[in-house]
Design a protein around this nucleic acid. Structure first.
Lengths: 154, 154
DNA sequence: TCTGAAAATGGACCTTT
DNA sequence: AAAGGTCCATTTTCAGA
């Protein structure tokens, strides 16, 4: 799918604020609201726009601790890796999980309410998994930047 | 602010899909659409709901490479750290940035179009900054899990 | 691009606890 | 008072001309 500069401007706007009306969007990018409607609809149908979500204040729900965990595996057997991926996916405290090349094999970003909760999760995910050789924990003192905005207008 | 089980159910629904109508939300949690409207409005005003954003398919825009960078600083002087945080915040390819305790000082999640772009950014952010002692790059082979869903209903 | 119908939002007002 | 429900006006979405 080809995206022109109107599409890019629309994407940039809605990835920052999906609440803005199509009328206001049209004003911002110089397009009628009907054109905005068509383009957004098309991009959603094509999967360029994957959906809209509300951003919730984690602190307000008691999730005040962000932890980054680097996991090193014992063997890279595919079925074992898949099992681990599944376990990470299923754990709601795991916000993000990357399978990486380098010294470690997985990097996890976790959001927990306190250290005790993190400890419990490490037991479940790492200590009770025979394929985890070791893991290293980095505690975030400050979440300098979070979000999922993609660079669009450069 | 105190959140009852209605609020929690609403938060859980809208953090997965903010497009759902207040009528459907009300059906899901057993509340009238007016009550849903009031509660959502209040939670937005109190900052529990920080906003709604569209999720964009990064691949569709050519951003196919996710890189995790661990940065070690020379000195922890506050003004120098603040300068670095500002630089990371201002770089659109930096999706997330955590200031951490441990072996390294910053962990960055970056989204780039290719290795060349990453190389250019490392020059700008790391090589040309005297306070960066060293940095380590981890390349993601698979983004197993991404998103920002907070665990609400457990 | 314009127009209009259908849907969604959000306020007013009344009732319940 | 605080919160829910119903009704209604306004706004928004979205398809057809």
């Amino acid at each position: 799918m080809s995206l022109d500069h109107f599409d890019l401007a629309l994407l940039d706007a809605v990835q920052r604020d999906a609440g803005i009306s199509q009328l206001d969007l049209g004003e911002k990018v110089n397009l009628s609201s009907a054109a905005v409607n068509r383009r957004l609809k098309k991009m959603a149908a094509e999967g360029v726009i994957q959906g809209t979500v509300a951003r919730i204040n984690a602190d307000a729900l008691g999730y005040t601790l962000t932890v980054i965990t680097e996991v090193e595996v014992e063997t890279e057997r595919l079925d074992l890796l898949d099992d681990m991926k599944r376990a990470f996916l299923a754990c709601p405290q795991v916000q993000q999980c990357y399978y990486v090349a380098g010294e470690c094999d997985f990097v996890l970003i976790m959001l927990v309410q306190n250290m005790e909760q993190y400890t419990n999760i490490t037991r479940e995910l790492f200590f009770e998994n025979n394929n985890v050789k070791k893991f290293k924990t980095l505690v975030s003192m400050s979440n300098v930047k979070t979000g999922t905005c993609i660079p669009i207008l450069d």
